[in-house]
Design a protein around this nucleic acid. Structure first.
Lengths: 197, 197, 197, 197
DNA sequence: GATGAATGAGCTTTCATTCAT
DNA sequence: AATGAATGAAAGCTCATTCAT
């Protein structure tokens, strides 16, 4: 394997481990030595890959946004109704919340609430644009096909994503009486009703 | 004034100042000396009122939840349709987000994302029960009057509060093209459509 | 003793100990824990007195400059000839270099050569102005009385102070074959010859 | 070109670049990777030429001392009066301070003030002997020809070099009101007066 | 010789908390 | 009740040096 590839792999493994630790233990409770230890890597070497903890946090949100964006793009490209797309998106969101909860938790618990960290370099959601763009496409397509009411994008975006985020937050607090995936139908239905033409 | 009253007042002013600082600067960026300084009080004395920073954080979320709960209770007690109540709640939420942004920001940026702090003593949302209870009453009343569809409470709660929280987050990120209060009608409409019978 | 006095004393003892360590071990080789340890004080508390290592370094040079300035002022106030004043100043400089070598060494080895540290806040010798001012007075008086040739001040200052500093440097390198105080006459004579009218 | 020559060239370019960086940024602020980067060389390879940062620093001072010594030797070999030689030396010193300030700055700001670094291997000025030797020759010649007063060498050396170093220091601090070269006459005059028979 | 990823001790600085007054 | 000096563990980050390739 080439050295460049090896470096890229190492880089991704750092993102992976940090994402996990930040999401589960919190950004401030997770120290650089914690991350290095889990990676069996020296602290100094970690800094060869990411020159500060804040920069690492920003790279993680970009990465996360891309992964989520890619998944939604696939839904956008399906030849199905907007109603069905909504369900697909809710499904994939909750599936991720179950299988790779770190990603959604990172969004909710790190990105959303450490403005000091993201204010410099991630202003105006530029670091989550991959994700936002796909939601925008979903919405525009729905409006274009006449299935969704034409309204301010952020009003629709806030509903969709605030709702899903809120549910995952409730899941994280262990207050949901049922498995989160059992809410898929109800929630898709509510979203569709809210947004339909 | 009695000494007990004086103490209660002092206690509230600590909550007030801390709420403000935590919400604007972040929980970790705000130090106990910062708070004491702003209160013109010694750190030692501050510890006579709240025995740790974490306990202070928990008392603040209880306080905030009560203030928000009280406001919603007033709406619940009005003799108006559920549709109108939705609008009133959206209005009061956005009004607070504008006039006393600390409260909503504290919810979003401190409570939501520092599980380490709130996990011991605020499990399962007990520290925000005043607020949740009122939303529950609102929902049950709506269902009882036949205006709202009978569905899992958390499914409805997630929609309502996730949506509002999401909008305030977007406001905080300065990405909303319009003043948040201009969204009141759209959002109330969406929520009503999502929840109506 | 009043608390304020106690604090002032503590502050001075920090300056004293740091001056000593910086001058003998070098600025970078001396760590804050080193200083704290020698003072039997905690690292954190040291930061209550000086908010950074650089600031501490700047306060020390001001302090040193004042002490030296005070000594020279006394000479300036004597009713003696300029020739005699030169000798007095050389004497006091070498006496200090012998009795409190840290001061002169600090000048030579810390202040002179860590521009990064002093560039912000001590530009253009403002931190050593107490000392420079007295040399200026000495020189102006000498010119006024007709004993010294009227030349550019810096040309005279460089001679006087560069010479004395150079000698102390040589002393520090242990290359002088004789005790530094035995050079007093020769050096005073040279300086006088160089500057006399 | 032979391999040995290539190595010598490389070695010199390392000295050159390091001298520049140490003199301008300070010894501790300059890292080995900084130097390697500027040389477009790997750090590992740099260590093939100089086995530690300290050793590099010592080689630089030797090199610098030789360059300065060579220049002064040329003056010593001229058939001119000691008075004229003084002026020539002041001229060359200030010319260097202007054209290749790194050298003089290295003397003043690195060699002079990092005793920890030079104490092992450069004791008693052995690393600057090339330079000192020439000054010694200058002085002995002047005494032999009857132009200079016979005094302790270090007393004369401290005057000459302390003075010149002091002036360059003042130049570096940007406090000199005039260009340093405009001081040549005054300073040469002062030095001559101080040392003449 | 040449590379640069990797090491890890050590640095400055912060801050929740305590406690003598 | 009130003060704020004092503590000290722990954080983020740096960098001279090594060594597998």
């Amino acid at each position: 394997m080439k050295i460049a590839d090896k470096k890229a792999l190492r880089r991704e493994s750092i993102i992976d481990v940090s994402l996990h630790l930040f999401a589960t233990q919190g950004f401030h409770k997770t120290t650089i030595p914690d991350i290095a230890k889990k990676l069996k890597m020296s602290v100094g070497n970690l800094y060869n890959y990411f020159s500060s903890k804040d920069i690492l946090a920003k790279e993680i949100i970009k990465y996360t946004s891309e992964v989520l964006g890619d998944e939604i793009r696939e839904v956008n490209q399906l030849e199905i109704s907007t109603k069905e797309k909504i369900k697909k998106i809710v499904e994939l969101y909750f599936r991720m919340a179950k299988e790779r909860p770190e990603m959604i938790e990172y969004f909710l618990r790190v990105y959303l609430s450490h403005r000091e960290v993201f204010s410099d370099g991630c202003e105006g959601m530029v670091c989550v644009s991959s994700f936002i763009t796909e939601i925008m496409i979903f919405f525009d397509d729905g409006v274009a096909s006449g299935e969704l009411r034409n309204q301010d994008f952020f009003s629709a975006f806030g509903l969709f994503m605030g709702y899903l985020g809120g549910m995952v937050f409730l899941k994280g607090e262990n207050v949901l009486p049922k498995d989160i995936e059992s809410y898929i139908d109800d929630i898709s239905f509510n979203i569709y009703n809210a947004l339909k033409a």
